[in-house]
């Protein structure tokens, strides 16, 4: 029953999303605003993928899957991979041992970075197991990291609970709108 409703809501959301994206980009193209070429690419991509999926199927070997594998997957992976370049640049410019806390964070980050690749094990494999970089990495992740993560989770849960209670008893009315 709930799943049926989910599907109904999902379909409506899909229609609204489709209408919004077409409307938004159509107007950008019509007004020839800056970067309207990207809007054209978006609409053409939407039309081609939609037509390919609806009329020719989405199973392996179909034209849809050809586009998915050879365009969408490499583009998506490229976007995510760009992170490595920006992270390296940001680490060089911003990761400074200015305070004790920053120094601790920096040391932990360096250990974890080395511990999460085979090189960390290779460099310290001659040491007793507890002193090898992967073991220290595991300790950092299983102790300080986990404690901090739990603290954040408890904080978020308590915050959600208190906000929900404030909404229920009428203290928080911002969601109703109507004024600052």
């Amino acid at each position: 029953m709930i799943l049926d409703w989910y599907i109904v809501v999902y379909v409506f959301a899909l229609v609204i999303g489709l209408q919004t994206i077409i409307h938004h980009h159509y107007h950008k193209i019509r007004r020839k605003t800056k970067g309207y070429w990207y809007s054209m690419v978006t609409l053409v991509s939407l039309a081609v993928m939609g037509t390919a999926g609806v009329f020719f199927g989405i199973e392996q070997g179909s034209f849809f899957m050809y586009l998915f594998r050879h365009i969408q997957v490499p583009l998506g992976a490229t976007m995510f991979s760009l992170l490595a370049f920006f992270m390296a640049s940001a680490a060089y410019r911003a990761f400074r041992a200015r305070t004790l806390e920053a120094t601790l964070l920096l040391v932990a980050a360096v250990i974890v970075m080395l511990g999460r690749v085979p090189l960390g094990y290779f460099l310290t494999k001659g040491l007793p197991e507890g002193f090898q970089i992967p073991a220290i990495t595991e300790w950092i992740l299983m102790n300080p990291n986990m404690a901090a993560k739990r603290g954040i989770m408890f904080g978020v849960a308590l915050g959600m609970l208190s906000t929900a209670l404030k909404v229920i008893v009428g203290i928080e009315r911002g969601y109703l709108g109507g004024g600052k």
């Binding site: 390296a88 410019r93 360096v110 090189l119």
Partner: peptide, 14 residues
């Protein structure tokens, strides 16, 4: 290699 390079950048920056 990339992780080592990033560590080197951090060291150089500091």
């Amino acid at each position: 290699v990339v992780h080592v390079l990033i560590v080197l950048f951090i060291v150089l920056g500091n």
